[in-house]
Amino acid sequence: MVTTLDEATLARARRVARSVPDPELPMLTIAELGILREVAIAGTRVVVSLTPTYSGCPAIPEIRADLAGRLAAAGFADVEVRTVLSPPWTSDLISPEGRRKLAAAGIAPPRSRSEVAAGPVPLTLSAGGPRLECPVCGSADTVRTAAFGGTACKDLYRCRACFEPFEHVKEI
């Protein structure tokens, strides 16, 4: 049971919370993914604020359980996880380290939203999607094979140079 809470304790709680992996993209922590908004201490309670990537994100209960478990193991028995809806999550919140880890895992990271003209996805009237760099061989000769992937945040691509399929985190 934690009885005194000071800056060092807060830093420790923050460190533990930041280390929680995302269930769907386990190579990233929730801090690198940008969904961890705040870690604060109120009395003896640790209050963690999260923003879901998508309205229907099914991973939130898992993240909550993992946060509570890790914080409990670090001596923080009283944990509250709050949802923060505004401003919404965007793929721009993925940290540079997070982007590097995505690419290393064979997932093309999202481009900056400022590079994507006219909103997250302009009404694209031709097939194929934007051309991305293949995370396997680096070729730009890639084509989108499906607009939605195994999770809400990804779509599917194929490289025409090395023939490998790969996932891409969508720009939202």
């Binding site: 879901p52 998508y54 309205s55 809806l85 505004s86 401003p87 919404p88 999550w89 965007t90 909103g119 997250p120 996805v121 607009a147 939605f148 809400a152 969508k170 939202i172």
Partner: peptide, 10 residues
């Protein structure tokens, strides 16, 4: 709505 706009665009 702000979150939904990103989704509906797709």
């Amino acid at each position: 709505a702000a979150q939904g706009v990103n989704e509906l665009t797709y």
